[in-house]
Design a protein around this nucleic acid. Sequence first.
DNA 1: GTACGTTTTGAGCATCTGCTCAAAACGTAC
DNA 2: GTACGTTTTGAGCAGATGCTCAAAACGTAC
Lengths: 212, 212
Amino acid sequence: MSGEATKQRIVDATIETIKHEGIVGTSARAIARRGDFNQALIFYHFGSVDEALFAAIQETSRHRIERYRERLTGVKSFPDLVAIAADLHREDMEEGNLTILTQLMAGAAGNPELGPRLREAFDPWIQVVIDALRDVLGGSAYERLVPLDDLGYAVSALFLGVELLAHLDPDRAGSETLFGSMGTLAEIVQVMLATGEVPEPVDATVQRIAVE
Amino acid sequence: MSGEATKQRIVDATIETIKHEGIVGTSARAIARRGDFNQALIFYHFGSVDEALFAAIQETSRHRIERYRERLTGVKSFPDLVAIAADLHREDMEEGNLTILTQLMAGAAGNPELGPRLREAFDPWIQVVIDALRDVLGGSAYERLVPLDDLGYAVSALFLGVELLAHLDPDRAGSETLFGSMGTLAEIVQVMLATGEVPEPVDATVQRIAVE
DNA sequence: GTACGTTTTGAGCATCTGCTCAAAACGTAC
DNA sequence: GTACGTTTTGAGCAGATGCTCAAAACGTAC
């Protein structure tokens, strides 16, 4: 078998193992058992288990980013965006993609070497969502108001948190998804605005846009 | 030494070990080494390493909840709430409490037995923040608009996500904290409101409150 | 001081981990 | 068919893991 085909087999087996056994249960032997090959193959092709894990997250991320980009680009209204994103999130849940990513993130948190590399694979996905948000909100208003870095951080945090919670408490995962949470936060802010309790710093720009 | 005192020593050593070595590095031997006692003590007093880990999160949670409750109750305005909560979050960061909780959460995600037990220890803390939010927003408007469960879920998710991100990318943790993210999300919603792009479902209640 | 229940220890077991390595199997070119 | 480079294997190493257990140390009551 060619080298590339085998690498793919290893990556596939790694993904399956994480899905079924969790990140802590994903050892070289567990991967090899699930893929039905010798565990030494992993070291021959990837050098270490960590490197195989990283290949697995890259693969998962790549597919996911592609799917999100396809479905989210060109969306015209915020309600549409929410509906589509909720669908995507639900699909991720069902396919077990969230398990993989969350497990990998969780396993890498605190690992000073793996952490930044995981963000590398995670950030482009956030960027897709941010781009869609920008399209919907309208470029100029968006640019003036929200520094991209902060927005990315906030959205990343919410996404990650929802995924992690979904695993801590799987029973609730179905009904309360990512954009449900975003909607709830949005509602809080609406109440604050309605009752005059606007969070600081109150950006004067908002008022201007509202008046214009 | 009395049984209780020794149990406390073990819990303390467990917390310190998680702080310094991460959840994956926290083995019975590592805990015993750090606390300078025999590892068999852990099994004599707790029965298993997992049970010692759970005692550690209970202890950490209890302290944290107390501190949050003391500082957040009686707060009158939203800006005050944000400022105090940001302080608390910063302190948690510096003391390493976030490391412990995030590591424990991450380690337990996917573990069907430990997950729900961790939420048990985690939820009361969220509740403290929710109570403070309710006080600031004003009871009746709050009750009408946001089902408590959804709010708890959203806030939990955001808190968890920020903590996890802080560990993936420690360099950014200092400047962008939890309530910074919440503020950013709030700003997004403000723009949406200003530009007329109100997320669905548009709650009629909000409009009513705004008009009244 | 001796007896007794609790607490602490050191050694050890079975099993797991990442990883190495020599030998075997394979594919291909001649 | 033989030779050669690539791929795959089985066995094994050193070290770690959770946990057990008999024996030692300890505290206290008499």
